[in-house]
């Protein structure tokens, strides 16, 4: 049993394995397969100030080694979350993190303020990188000024751990990371999905209702790893690495290039119990290699 506990800002995680927003529902959907108390934490669905209907069907296309989605932030709104979903998530040993999205900095801040009041939620993850909505989302995450403007506003409204989720759809992800660090973010998570397309050649149209979607799954892992490595060199903030993790070995790659924790997304669709296997697998790997503390592998590749 190696020591697996890590810190993300003021947030203490019992192990470095979290689930990625939009891929694990509110956790409860997986309760038959996963002991929710054994996760480091889980990041719930993208939440906005007002309810959102999301994009039209079809919202998904399978690709080689992954999938595209254009769900478009369908969610019941932050008030519904606070009143009806949060009570069901109380008392867990793992951290519940709310993924927050909006269409203006004020919007993000208002949503964050609601969540600040929830005693057992100790962190939010700002989604400034959703490629599937026109108003906001990725629009903020692709420029340093846009990213900074959202973080600045939210930082005033939110007192606990503020994680900012970065878009890979940029020329220089390290500069965006520096911009959010300068505005007082406590951590960054990366990557969100890569914008992509898939075409039905018989019907001569895109397989997705809005034309494009976000690519996720093992096919994006090499890109994600490279970006985590770049950001690790650019900022002092703790990093949560994600993108295509399917196994404990994948997770360890992210830790070695500088991530303090990881998130597992699309892999939950292939194996609903995958998170437990990753937690146990990291532990076993550390034991097998005579390593007593997970920190001894974090960032070992400079």
């Amino acid at each position: 049993m190696a020591k697996l506990q890590v810190n993300i800002g003021a947030l203490s995680l019992q192990n470095p394995v979290l689930t990625a927003s939009g891929t694990f529902g509110y956790g409860l959907e997986f309760a038959d397969f996963v002991d929710l108390n054994r996760l480091g934490g889980f990041v719930v669905k993208g939440t906005t100030l007002r309810p959102r209907e999301g994009n039209d069907y079809p919202r998904m296309a399978e690709t080689t080694g992954g999938m595209l989605n254009c769900v478009g932030l369908q969610n019941p709104g932050v008030e519904h979350f606070c009143q009806h979903i949060y009570p069901q998530l109380k008392g867990l040993k793992s951290e519940v993190i709310v993924n927050v999205s909006g269409s203006s900095p004020a919007d993000y801040a208002a949503c964050a303020r609601h969540i600040d009041a929830l005693e057992e939620v100790h962190a939010i993850e700002l989604n400034i990188s959703c490629p599937n909505v026109k108003d906001g989302g990725m629009a903020f995450g692709v420029t340093c000024e846009g990213a900074a403007s959202v973080v600045r506003e939210v930082r005033k409204a939110y007192s606990k751990t503020l994680i900012v989720k970065l878009s890979p759809n940029v020329t220089d992800i390290a500069s965006i990371a520096r911009a959010v660090e300068a505005e007082g973010a406590d951590a960054v998570s990366l990557i969100n999905t890569l914008m992509g397309m898939s075409v039905d050649i018989e019907r001569r149209c895109s397989r997705l209702s809005i034309g494009t979607g976000g690519l996720s799954g093992p096919c994006v892992k090499p890109v994600a790893l490279r970006m985590v490595s770049q950001v690790a060199k650019a900022v002092k903030l703790p990093i949560i690495g994600l993108g295509g993790i399917m196994t404990a070995e994948d997770a360890i790659e992210f830790l070695m290039v500088g991530a303090t924790a990881v998130q597992i997304g699309t892999a939950n669709f292939i194996d609903p119990a995958v998170t437990m296997k990753v937690v146990d697998g990291i532990d076993r790997w550390l034991d097998d290699h005579g390593i007593a503390d997970v920190h001894d592998i974090i960032g070992v590749i400079g």
Partner: peptide
């Protein structure tokens, strides 16, 4: 038989409009 990714209600990929127009 909508296209599905997770089958568990987690990804919201498989939606159909209900009588009130909600997914």
């Amino acid at each position: 038989e909508n296209l599905m990714a997770c089958g568990l209600g987690a990804c919201l990929c498989c939606v159909e409009k209900n009588a009130d127009g909600h997914n």
